[in-house]
Structure formats: C-alpha cells, structure tokens
Nucleic acid binder design. Sequence first.
DNA 1: TCAAATTATTTACCTAAGTAAGTATATCGT
DNA 2: ACGATATACTTACTTAGGTAAATAATTTGA
Lengths: 143, 143
Amino acid sequence: MRNLLFHEIHQTSRLSVKEVNEVLKEFDLYSSQWSVLFCLKQFGAMTQKEIWQYLNVEAPTVTRTIARLEESRWVMRREGEDKRARIVVLSDRAERLMPQIEQRITELEERLLARLTDEEQRQLIELLRKIGVEPEEKDVRND
Amino acid sequence: MRNLLFHEIHQTSRLSVKEVNEVLKEFDLYSSQWSVLFCLKQFGAMTQKEIWQYLNVEAPTVTRTIARLEESRWVMRREGEDKRARIVVLSDRAERLMPQIEQRITELEERLLARLTDEEQRQLIELLRKIGVEPEEKDVRND
DNA sequence: TCAAATTATTTACCTAAGTAAGTATATCGT
DNA sequence: ACGATATACTTACTTAGGTAAATAATTTGA
C-alpha cells in the first residue's frame, strides 16, 4: 500500500519529466535545464549555490546542467566578488525565447492537470509537502 | 502554481529514492533493483517484458537493471520457450534475504508517511493517478 | 515455403542525480 | 601574519531513465 504510494509518485514524476522533455525538444532543451532557466528568470542573476539550494539538488548536478546551458548559449557565467562563486546570468537569446517556451509548458501543465480541480491541486501539493519536510535539516522556524 | 506542483512531485520522488537507497546500501542494492526484486517476489518468474510493463519503464532500463542484479547474484535469467524472451527468476539468496530487506523498507515507508493519515495516503494515490492515467493504454479493469 | 513484418531484447548514446574526493578561494583564531 | 578550517565549485564514478537503431527469433501472408 505504502509501496504503491511511492511507486505512484515515481511514476508521475517520470511521466511529467518525459512530457516536458517532449515539449522542450523543439527548443533543444531538457526539463532540468528548463528549471534552471525558470529559476533565473524568476530571481535574476544567481550563484550556483543559490540555484541548487532553491532546486534542492546537489552542487554537481547544477554544475553539469549549467555547463550544458552555457555551451548552448542559454546562460553565461561571471566571476563574483568572491572568486570561488560563479554568477549565472540568462543570455539575451534566453530572455527573448523564454516567454514562448513558458507558454508551451503552461499548456502542457494544463493538459496534465485537466482532471484536477484547483482545490485538488492545492491538496496534492500539501500532501506531498507533508512527506518531504525534514525539520532537523531544513532549519525552518515554524512559529 | 502548476509549476510548483510538478516541482513538488519531482522533489518528493527524489527524496524517497534517496532514502530507499540509503536503506538498501547495507544490502548492496539500489531502489530500482529493489523494485524489480519486489516484482518477482510478488508474481514469480517473469519475462523482462512483463517486468517493464508492470513497472512502466522502457525495455532498455530493465535490461540494465537486471544485468546488474544478475552480476550480483540476485536473479538468474533462463531461456523461455520463445527463445527471444528471457525469463527472470529470483536466486535462493534473494528469496532468503528479501523478508529482511522488506522489513527495513517498510519501516522507512512508515517513517516517511508518518505525517499522513491512511485517508490522506489514499487521497494522495488517487490524485496522482488522476494525473498519470492514460486511459487508452492502461486497460486496467477497476472493479 | 519463405520473404516480410512483428516482437523481445540489447547496444549505443544522451541527460539526471547522487556520493566522494579534489581544487581554489575566503575566513577564522591565535 | 599565517596555518587551520570552511566554502564554492569541479571531477570522477555510479545508477536511473529515455530514444533510436541493431539483432535475433517468431509469426504472417501470399
């Protein structure tokens, strides 16, 4: 039963990544690359650390993803005041193309979530969060 | 908002895989290997096709996973009547160790789901299924 | 019967994500 | 001031999963 739950989460995750990749193929992008671009669009220039903390992945994962995004000219990396850190910035091309891509992704998401009401979506997020929280590590002051 | 939902699903999926791997480390296993073993325990000997159809992944994924399980002596592969197909069987060692592993996994799952009531778990599965279902393909008789 | 189509698996190649260890810069404590 | 420690990122290696194309066995159809 629990078993089933994690199986189902895993399935849904794979399914959605697959569909996102399908949409992004047209732009020569992959889902995890898109999530980095989206992050930069939202917050502006960021260090890699800020990116992996926000996305909740490990540093090497972000190193790789950004290296690919740099090769394909979606982002540039600048040196920061702190020379250890690398600041990531969207390229002009990225700024220009992102609205288009964003729309396609939104359409896909609407399609995938067509069977859920807004209330159900809200519920789903909340239930998932109840699983994911790690109070010791996260240093979240919940008061 | 939708964005947030898929982000959350992805996170939860990664988190649970990570935790399962942590538990399985002791047995030199990985989560996807475990899911194959679990499948074989449940249904007995199966062809690779039956396995990937059940797990809902692509054939090459199962080829690799089973190759590793075979190397580490968790399963054997036999030739079937149809010589194209390879029938996968649990090794004696697997049969012997699985109850132990299963218990550890169950404990983990209980820990991860501690914040959810049974009703919430049921709800969560149902909501995820509403996203994942592809009515044409699945041919599931739910009665 | 036997060429053509289908099926089961595999191989090659790609991205994603993890751990462990390495490198370079920054900061801390004495 | 400077050695020890911490931080930001990278490198090397692992599994997981996907697509496309190759291989081998089976089935189909004229």
